[in-house]
Simulated scan of single mutants.
Amino acid sequence: MSGSASELARRLGEHAEAVCREYLSNGHRSGNYWMVGDVRNMRGRSMHVRLKAVGGKAAGKWVDESSGEYGDLLDVIEQSCGLVDFREVTDEARRFLAMPQPDLQSRPSVAGRQSAAARGSPEAARRLFAMSQPIAGTLAERYLAGRGILLSPRERALRFHPGCYYRDLVTGETQTLPALIAAVTNLDGQITGLQRTWLDPSGQGKAQLTDPRRSLGDLLGNAIWLGRQPGAPVAVMAAGEGFETMASLKVVMPALPVAAATSANHLAGLILPPGCRRLYIAADADAAGRHGIERLSQRAGQAGILALVLRPHLGDFNDDLRHLGPAHLAAWLSDQFVPEDAGLFLPPG
């Protein structure tokens, strides 16, 4: 049996309706077609998948009348699961078909198909971000609201994927789960990476996984930016490791540009925007991120930037926001800000 991509697509076509029920679950059968909103499994009727071969036309082929996209069932698996590596697509197809996984030397050929982005590359990050949707009205928005994080709809760094692919790094088992997608960008606003936070489908916080949050792409020097226009100078800003920490500060200071570097090492290497005069670095109550804070403070000082460390009242600033409330958090921060900045960014009183 051939291990080529075309052979996998043909085998999937033999079970087209079962594939659609698994990966396009928001659709329904209508005659010889499966109707759904799009290849990412949105609700609607603009995309139709042929379920049985007719007049020489193969089963499993699909077209989206709205966008003009078309393809086969491998594309359905790739897009609906949010996969960014072709090996993952074929692995998932083989899992569905209950076929044995090949060794590395006999991986399926990608001849005749568009090359997939390299695993973990900036292009892979951009593709997954493009596959996702705005968070308004989604489980991602509900998750953030449950953490006390209510952001302006103008924040374009955040997206939602209803069925993002997750692989257990120990067992190799795979599943698809909803995920909050946060874009990591450079100072020009170009996506270089992203962070995925897998969510519990029931809406009860993060998914019950060993590592429900993972990043990919080029992260060093870049960040999840909130409240900054690409390429624009920034006089005053805040930076820290975690996205939820920085988003919590953004809730009480909506005019302040903030950057989440995703880790202590990446915080240490954060590239600061031109024109920056004061940098507030968010710390956690523990000392895990001390290296990143000290290194970034040193680099800022060498560049003539005043660096000041913000310390939470509880474990981190999201704890402060959730348990003490935005007014208490703003009051707690007021004594840690330069008076000029406190008057500019913090609410009166």
Score class of each variant (00 low, 15 high):
residue 1 M to R: 08
residue 2 S to Q: 14
residue 3 G to R: 13
residue 5 A to I: 01
residue 7 E to N: 13
residue 9 A to W: 05
residue 13 G to Q: 04
residue 15 H to C: 15
residue 15 H to R: 15
residue 18 A to P: 02
residue 22 E to M: 13
residue 26 N to D: 10
residue 27 G to W: 02
residue 30 S to V: 12
residue 31 G to K: 13
residue 32 N to V: 08
residue 33 Y to K: 08
residue 35 M to D: 09
residue 36 V to T: 01
residue 44 G to P: 11
residue 47 M to C: 06
residue 50 R to D: 13
residue 54 V to E: 15
residue 55 G to W: 11
residue 55 G to M: 11
residue 57 K to S: 13
residue 59 A to L: 06
residue 61 K to Y: 13
residue 61 K to R: 15
residue 63 V to Q: 07
residue 65 E to H: 14
residue 67 S to I: 03
residue 68 G to T: 04
residue 69 E to N: 13
residue 72 D to V: 04
residue 73 L to K: 09
residue 76 V to R: 00
residue 79 Q to V: 14
residue 80 S to I: 05
residue 82 G to H: 01
residue 85 D to L: 12
residue 86 F to C: 06
residue 89 V to G: 04
residue 89 V to N: 02
residue 90 T to P: 00
residue 91 D to A: 12
residue 94 R to Y: 03
residue 94 R to N: 05
residue 95 R to A: 13
residue 102 P to A: 07
residue 108 P to Y: 00
residue 109 S to F: 09
residue 114 Q to M: 12
residue 122 P to Y: 02
residue 123 E to W: 10
residue 125 A to D: 12
residue 127 R to L: 14
residue 131 M to S: 07
residue 133 Q to G: 05
residue 135 I to V: 13
residue 138 T to F: 05
residue 139 L to Y: 05
residue 139 L to P: 03
residue 141 E to C: 06
residue 148 G to T: 00
residue 150 L to V: 14
residue 151 L to H: 03
residue 152 S to F: 03
residue 153 P to G: 10
residue 154 R to N: 10
residue 155 E to D: 11
residue 159 R to A: 11
residue 161 H to D: 02
residue 162 P to M: 07
residue 163 G to T: 03
residue 163 G to V: 00
residue 164 C to V: 03
residue 166 Y to F: 11
residue 167 R to H: 07
residue 169 L to V: 12
residue 174 T to H: 00
residue 175 Q to Y: 07
residue 178 P to N: 01
residue 178 P to T: 04
residue 179 A to R: 11
residue 183 A to V: 09
residue 204 Q to R: 15
residue 206 K to L: 08
residue 215 S to N: 15
residue 218 D to I: 09
residue 219 L to A: 10
residue 222 N to M: 01
residue 224 I to H: 03
residue 226 L to E: 04
residue 227 G to N: 02
residue 228 R to V: 09
residue 228 R to N: 07
residue 232 A to R: 14
residue 236 V to R: 03
residue 238 A to D: 00
residue 239 A to L: 02
residue 240 G to M: 05
residue 245 T to Q: 07
residue 247 A to F: 04
residue 247 A to Q: 01
residue 250 K to L: 12
residue 253 M to E: 01
residue 255 A to F: 08
residue 258 V to R: 03
residue 265 N to D: 14
residue 267 L to D: 00
residue 267 L to A: 03
residue 269 G to T: 10
residue 270 L to Y: 02
residue 277 R to H: 13
residue 283 A to D: 00
residue 285 A to F: 04
residue 286 D to Y: 09
residue 288 A to G: 10
residue 288 A to M: 13
residue 292 G to E: 03
residue 294 E to D: 15
residue 297 S to N: 10
residue 302 Q to C: 11
residue 303 A to H: 10
residue 304 G to A: 11
residue 305 I to F: 08
residue 319 D to T: 09
residue 322 R to A: 12
residue 328 H to W: 07
residue 332 W to K: 09
residue 334 S to L: 05
residue 337 F to W: 11
residue 338 V to F: 15
residue 341 D to P: 09
residue 342 A to D: 06
residue 345 F to S: 00
residue 345 F to H: 00
residue 349 G to W: 12
